[in-house]
Design a binder for these strands. Structure first.
Length: 678
RNA sequence: GGCUAUGUAGCUCAGUUGGUUAGAGCACAGCAUUCAUAAUGCUGGGGUCGGUAGUUCGAGUCUACCCAUAGCCA
């Protein structure tokens, strides 16, 4: 078989926080792919690095009262430990804040300049008049224009998730001085992507990108490519642009260059030939595994950078979806924003590797970590089905046959072994095409068939009959051989388990061994069987969630301060409100309104049978049918307000938090329409 | 708001170019079994495929609109 030369990367984790289970989807996906390639005898190199530049890192370092360099060094140590324990087998892990990366970034920038792909022009930025510096979005704070949460960043609101520009903030102020920012012209450097449009189009079309991504990319081309702003002003943690004092490369310019820098760093200590992988005429393969959120940095900006600077382009870019936990986005308060370290404190990494593999496909769908399913699936598949095969056969072999295997099977078993061997082509292809879930299904099907066969031969009965001893020897040896095959197929996913199993049957497995169809030889001695993997226990999963919740509540004061109690009012202020119980006599959809329902409220006999018309913004949480007949509380003396759809004569009270829920307030049973609420 | 995806049994997912009674694993129920880490085998119940309206002899599978979820908008 021809050996391929392959360079693989995972996206660079950002150095301002810990690795969490969401990150691990990608590293595990990549690692499985790389391990398969290596097992197949290909020359495959897997590099990564910490992404160490940008404003958030500066801010974080400031908060902790340390230099950015100290922060990123500390983070890198932590990241590497997490990856190593999750068995992510990087050949090199580096940092974008490195000499290699500085050299490449500067060199690439100069090449782009030389090709006339860089220009400059003035844009209006916010300026701090006291500190005399331009303010990055994150250095401007103010009230969210959408949800009115106070003290939010200039680019997005942490309370409601809205995105906007700093100029949209209410009461904007500089995070540095507190002064109100002023608008001022500022010089920026731009990468003129439009000049590479044709070449980029060709690349994106010829490159068998995932169809979802191709569709998305065609969108960028439709409006023509805009120039890309690649400079940021001091204060910034990054590389200064050559010949431009006080201007820095935007983090997204030098981050992907970090792939090259990390590989260069690897070449220097391994003797690998850098140019053979990166020159424009390279015949090596280059793959980037990334999350769907950063697709266009990798399918547009990054290839453009490489083209412009005269390097090779990626062979392909593989996008994956996001991790959900129990069907929802990871959430600190639900205890599902689980850090890699927290997981490791309670559970074995291979459980998660198996579960992710069992659910990963080639598409960009989000992947759900359902914790009950996780426990059941791993226990059932890996322990119950797979490891059980060795466990139920090993005893007979070691106790009754001096730990020696037979190499002759019944014709039925021989056929089963041949079929399982033949499946290697298909399984390998599933892995190669990143259809891990299908690979796992194929593998577990073989495990099922093996258990069925063992059941059929009933060695535990036959062992009682001296005449059937050879049959027992054969079926158990068959089981061990099938187990060996299955472990081999799962080795990319479960490298540690595979290592233990290889120890057990005194053999090391490559894909060629699996494909050969050969069994272990007659008389081959197996070692004493020890449990290779134990079951996931519920209390461990619960403990992990608890620990995550504790981490969240430790930060709670910061979170609760985002919505403090309003300033005090007098009783007289309160008494001005005429709150009444009302019955919804009619509720209907409003044509053309996204969020409104039109309610007819019956205020009962006490008010002389008064009815009011109210438009309530509760369509997202209630259907008209479920509201009709219900009692609610309304502000009855609120001045009527004219809306696009008609006159609204009051407000219905409802509770809402930042977690997108909306809950209408109902009086307890017994209340009647018209009653005062006080 | 625009765009790109996703929405199939309690849970997690498969369903090729539209075609006989919609599949798997887990969970559940019953039976068998005890070699094995309460593991294994057999049998069974359970979905009309997010909603509505279309195209078609025929749609989970095509079209339009709507709803929900995720991501992106340099």
């Amino acid at each position: 078989m021809e050996s391929r030369r392959i360079l693989v990367t995972s996206a660079l984790p950002y150095a301002n926080g810990s690795i969490h289970l969401g990150h691990l989807v990608e590293y595990i996906q990549t690692d499985i792919w790389v391990r398969l390639q290596k097992m197949c005898g290909h020359h495959c190199i897997y590099v990564c690095a910490d992404d160490a530049h940008g404003t958030p890192i500066m801010l974080r370092a400031q908060e902790e009262g340390i230099e950015p360099e100290e922060l990123i060094a500390k983070t890198q140590t932590e990241h590497e430990a997490d990856f190593s324990e999750f068995l992510i087998g990087f050949d090199n892990f580096h940092s974008t804040h490195s000499e290699e990366n500085r050299n490449f970034a500067e060199d690439i920038f100069k090449k782009l300049q030389h090709k006339d792909l860089i220009n400059t022009r003035s844009v209006i930025d916010l300026f701090d008049p006291e500190q005399k510096v331009f303010l990055p979005d994150r250095f401007v704070r103010g009230t969210c224009p959408k949800c009115k949460a106070e003290d939010q960043y200039g680019d997005n609101c942490e309370a409601c998730g809205a995105t906007y520009s700093p100029a949209d903030l209410i009461n904007p102020h500089s995070a540095l001085s507190g002064a109100t920012p002023v608008e001022k012209e500022n010089l920026h450097y731009f990468f003129q992507l439009g000049k590479l449009e044709e070449e980029l189009k060709t690349w994106t079309q010829s490159n068998s990108l995932q169809p979802e991504i191709s569709n998305k990319i065609s969108e960028w081309f439709e409006d023509g490519l805009k120039d890309w702003d690649i400079s940021r002003d001091a204060p910034y943690f990054g590389f200064e642009i050559p010949g431009a004092t006080g201007k820095y490369f935007y983090v997204w310019l030098d981050a992907p260059i970090g792939y090259m820098a990390s590989f260069k760093n690897y070449c220097e200590r391994s003797g690998e030939d850098f140019d053979a992988y990166w020159n424009a005429d390279s015949t090596a393969e280059l793959y980037h595994f990334i999350g769907k959120d950063i697709a266009y940095f990798h399918t547009l900006f990054w290839p453009a950078t490489l083209m412009g600077a005269g390097y090779r382009k990626p062979t392909n870019v593989f996008c994956h979806g996001f991790l959900m936990v129990n069907g929802k986005k990871m959430s600190k308060s639900r205890g599902t924003f689980i850090k890699a370290r927290t997981y490791l404190n309670h559970l074995q990494p291979e459980y998660l590797r198996y579960y992710f593999a069992a659910k990963l496909g080639p598409g960009i769908n989000d992947l759900d970590l359902n914790l009950d399913d996780f426990q059941q699936r791993v226990n059932s598949d890996v322990v119950g089905k797979l490891v059980n095969i060795a466990s139920r056969c090993a005893g007979f072999i070691s106790k009754k046959f001096d730990a020696k295997l037979s190499a002759s099977f019944s014709s039925e078993c021989e056929q089963a072994f041949a079929e399982a061997t033949a499946a290697n082509t298909e399984i390998k292809d599933h892995y190669e095409q990143r259809r891990y879930a299908e690979a796992i299904r194929s593998i577990m099907k073989i495990a099922d068939q093996t258990n069925q066969l063992i059941d059929q031969y009933k060695p535990w009965e036959k062992i009682k009959d001296e005449n059937c001893k050879e049959e027992v020897h054969q079926i158990c040896s068959f089981g061990i051989n099938m187990f060996r095959l299955l472990i081999g197929y799962l080795k990319p996913v479960l490298p540690e388990l595979a290592g233990k199993a290889e120890n057990f049957f005194n053999d090391e497995l490559t894909w060629a061994d699996l494909a050969s169809g050969e069994t272990l030889p007659e008389g081959h001695i197996i070692n004493k069987f020890k449990p290779l993997m134990t079951r996931i226990e519920s209390d461990k999963v619960e403990a992990m969630i608890e620990e995550t919740k504790e981490q969240a509540s430790a930060q709670a004061p910061v979170i609760s301060a985002s919505d403090p109690i309003d300033s005090e009012i007098s009783f007289d202020d309160f008494a001005k409100l005429d709150l009444r119980v009302a019955r919804i006599s009619k509720a209907e959809l409003v044509a053309g309104a996204d969020k409104l329902l039109q309610l007819t409220l019956d205020l009962g006999e006490a008010t002389g049978g008064l009815e009011k018309n109210v438009f309530a913004g509760i369509k997202s949480a209630y259907s008209p049918e479920e509201l009709e007949g219900k009692l609610v509380v309304m502000v009855a003396n609120l001045a009527a307000r004219k809306m696009r759809f008609g006159l609204s004569e009051g407000m219905v009270l409802a509770a809402s938090g930042d977690d997108s829920g909306l809950f209408v307030i109902h009086p307890d049973s017994g209340a009647e329409a018209g009653m005062r609420v006080k």
